[in-house]
Every structure is written in structure tokens, then in C-alpha cells.
């Protein structure tokens, strides 16, 4: 894929994630981790090659179906992208509202998840008043609240201490056990090592598979 007319930032990428799998994406800064995730969460199209999601070739999916695919993907953005004019509670509720759910059906779930990520006392706070780590936990809560089939997290532990980082990893493992496919871009070597999960390593936009990831690699995108 490429940004505007710039040269392609990813090429020779070829892999397949099986449903229910759990992978990390690693690589130096600027290697293309975020770019790879953007293609998967349908924010950016591949300039060539093919991206398939849930068994469908994205380039053939009609535009009106894309929102429904996006609702099945939870994303923790590297820069969080919280809505500053809404409370923490409203930010977490956002994907549920967009999916057309009724407030009464989810308000307790939202509260419970916020307490779980340690924001029980900050439910009414607006994001600009939260610390970096609190924003990160809020972004994670928003990404997982709607039980997505796929969770993409871009540096989800970049701003939290090791204890919280382990706690977040446990949340991801828990979600994965319930069937969510997980792909996490991370610099956090301890976290990656601790998890014992397969790693997709990017080097200047090229995929170099490591660990036991090989078994799952298939498909292609550029």
C-alpha cells in the first residue's frame, strides 16, 4: 500500500490469520506496522494485491456492506482517537450506539468494562482530562466493548506500566479464548516474549515471519 503518490510502504506481504489466532506484529519504527493494521481495519486500500476479511475479498465487497464488516473489527488506534467532547462512558458506548443497540441493554456492560480497565472512577471524565495511560485503557475498552470478531491493537501498552500492561495482555488472552482473532502491533519486547504468541516481523515494509508464525501464513497484499 501507499500514501498518496509516495512510494509503497508495504510490499511482499503475504500471510493469513486463522480465526481465533493471536499474533503480534513487530518491527522498527516506520517499518509499516500501523499501515498494515490500517489495511485490515479498512481505513486504507491496498494499492495492489488482495486483502480478504472474513472470507471475502475486500475489493469486491459493495460499499454498503463495509460498515458491517467494520463493526466486527475492534481497533485500538496508536493515537487513541477518542472523541474529546464525549465522556469516557460515552466513548466506550460509541460502537454499541453505532451498531444500533439500546442504552438499557448495554449500560451495565460499559460500566463493568470501565471498572475492569481501572476507570471506574473516571466514567464521566472527558478524554483531554485523562492521563496517557488512562486514555490508552479507554481506547482498549472502546475497541473490545462490542465483542469484535477481530481485535487490532496498535501499541496498546505503550503508555502503561508493566503491571497494567500484563493486565491488558490478560484481557486480550481472555477475549482470544472466547474466539476473538487478535493482532497486536507492539514494540514491547517483554510483552511479546511473555505472551509466547507468534510474531509477524516487518522490516522496511517487508514481512519476515518469525517464531511459529509460519504455519499460518498465506494470502498476499501489497
Amino acid at each position: 500500500m501507499r500514501y498518496g503518490r509516495a512510494p509503497e510502504v508495504l510490499n511482499n506481504i503475504n500471510f493469513q490469520l486463522m480465526p481465533g489466532s493471536f499474533h503480534f506484529v513487530t518491527g522498527a519504527s516506520g517499518a509499516g506496522k500501523s499501515s498494515l493494521l490500517k489495511m485490515i481495519y479498512l481505513a486504507h486500500r491496498a494499492s495492489r494485491g488482495r486483502v480478504s476479511l472474513f472470507g471475502r475479498d475486500i475489493s469486491t465487497v459493495p460499499g454498503r456492506d463495509l460498515p458491517f464488516l467494520r463493526r466486527r473489527i475492534g481497533v485500538v488506534f496508536q493515537e487513541f482517537r477518542l472523541l474529546d467532547h464525549l465522556s469516557a462512558f460515552d466513548n466506550v458506548a460509541l460502537p454499541l450506539r453505532i451498531a444500533g443497540k439500546k442504552a438499557n441493554d448495554y449500560r451495565q456492560d460499559v460500566a463493568e468494562l470501565l471498572r475492569w480497565v481501572g476507570l471506574g472512577e473516571r466514567m464521566q471524565a472527558e478524554p483531554p482530562t485523562l492521563s496517557g495511560g488512562e486514555k490508552q485503557r479507554l481506547a482498549i475498552a472502546r475497541a473490545v466493548i462490542n465483542r469484535p470478531d477481530v481485535l487490532l491493537a496498535d501499541e496498546p501498552t505503550g503508555n502503561v506500566d508493566p503491571a497494567m500492561s500484563l493486565r491488558i495482555l490478560r484481557l486480550f488472552v481472555e477475549l482470544n479464548r472466547m474466539g476473538t482473532t487478535i493482532l497486536i502491533a507492539s514494540h514491547d519486547e517483554d510483552l511479546v516474549a511473555n505472551s509466547g504468541r507468534p510474531v509477524l516481523h516487518l522490516d522496511s515494509g517487508r514481512l519476515i515471519a518469525l517464531g511459529d508464525a509460519q504455519g499460518n501464513l498465506h494470502g498476499e497484499a501489497g
Binding site: Y41, P67, L69, R70, R81
Partner: peptide
């Protein structure tokens, strides 16, 4: 920015 977040969270363009 708001439009983008709504869009990526699966809001239809009509919404």
C-alpha cells in the same frame, strides 16, 4: 476527526 472515528467504528455514511 469525529467523522473518521464514526466511520471506522462502522457508522454508515447515511448515519
Amino acid at each position: 476527526d469525529v467523522v473518521e472515528v464514526l466511520h471506522l467504528s462502522g457508522a454508515s455514511s447515511g448515519f
